[in-house]
């Protein structure tokens, strides 16, 4: 069976700052990393590969050419293969356009087709766009079952059972393959790459695909293929008009707080 990881390269967290004048993002540090939850997805694939026989793990990413680095890292972490969808035609894709490209890659370009026992793993969401929409959308386009927010996967006779974490507890859902699963942090603890893995990754070519190579028209991907448009980006108004009090022995700070809260109807 094939296990596919959809893997996104994201800016290293907390180094994103906003230029308040222009409303654009400043990357103080150009360090990019594998989306943390995609590392969990990859680690889960490796775990399943060890437990089952005859599993091949393939990482697929769409992004700028330097996303090859993230894919090399995936190979160092144990993926057998990796491919990158990269071309200016993909630029500006929203989640639907991204999902169409990834679905097409799964259907055609990796192994020629999606096998009847294949499994696709995604992160529940990426740390930059944070929509969590790409996994389910890919599944809808492929017309296969999807289980989201998963913290445990069991595979038996090509039937997949998953524990899905919801607001009030856990749901247990069973579905046949092929299927897509989006994972959360609790699913495992990713390992570090081994030296052998790193060496192996170094020499590997990462094949790059354009929309043409995938047989997708330019109208389906990139900005033109994206039904949504970001019309404005701004920094959230953080500061409120704070009322400040210095605590002292008079007890006024606390008294005023209580009447402030009562006035607002907060308590």
């Amino acid at each position: 069976m094939n296990i596919y990881i959809l893997l996104k390269q994201v800016p290293g967290t907390s180094d994103v700052k906003m230029d308040e004048e222009t409303g654009t993002m400043i990357r103080t540090d150009r360090r990019n990393v594998i989306n943390p939850l995609d590392e969990n997805a990859l680690a889960e694939a490796i775990r399943l590969k060890r437990a089952l026989s005859d599993v091949e793990v393939t990482a697929i990413s769409m992004g700028p050419p330097h996303a090859q680095r993230a894919l090399r890292e995936a190979i160092a972490l144990g993926a057998d293969k990796a491919i990158l969808l990269s071309h200016k035609g993909f630029g500006g894709s929203d989640t639907l356009a991204t999902s169409k490209a990834l679905a097409k890659a799964l259907l055609t370009s990796v192994n020629g087709r999606l096998g009847k026992n294949d499994l696709i793993l995604c992160g529940e969401r990426a740390t930059d766009g944070e929509t969590g929409q790409v996994g389910p959308m890919v599944a809808a386009i492929l017309d296969i079952p999807v289980i989201t927010f998963v913290r445990k996967i069991t595979l038996e006779d090509y039937l997949l059972t998953a524990e899905r974490v919801v607001e009030e507890g856990l749901e247990l859902i069973k579905t046949p393959l092929p299927a897509l699963v989006t994972v959360i942090k609790d699913i495992n603890q990713p390992e570090f790459p081994t030296l052998a893995g790193k060496l192996n990754a170094k020499s590997r070519e990462i094949p790059i695909f354009s929309p043409d190579d995938l047989g997708i028209s330019n109208n389906e991907v990139g900005l033109r293929g994206s039904p949504t448009r970001v019309v404005k980006i701004f920094k959230p108004k953080l500061s409120r008009d704070v009322i400040m009090h210095q605590q002292d022995s008079s007890g006024a700070a606390v008294d005023n707080l209580i009447s402030f809260l009562e006035k607002r109807g907060a308590i």
Partner: peptide, 23 residues
């Protein structure tokens, strides 16, 4: 934007071939 809504909406949006904004 609950675990249910965040799952069903991208599925339906992709089926309807339309845009979806999250959360």
């Amino acid at each position: 934007a609950t675990t249910q809504g965040r799952t069903i909406m991208p599925l339906v949006a992709a089926k309807l071939d339309t845009g979806l904004t999250a959360d």
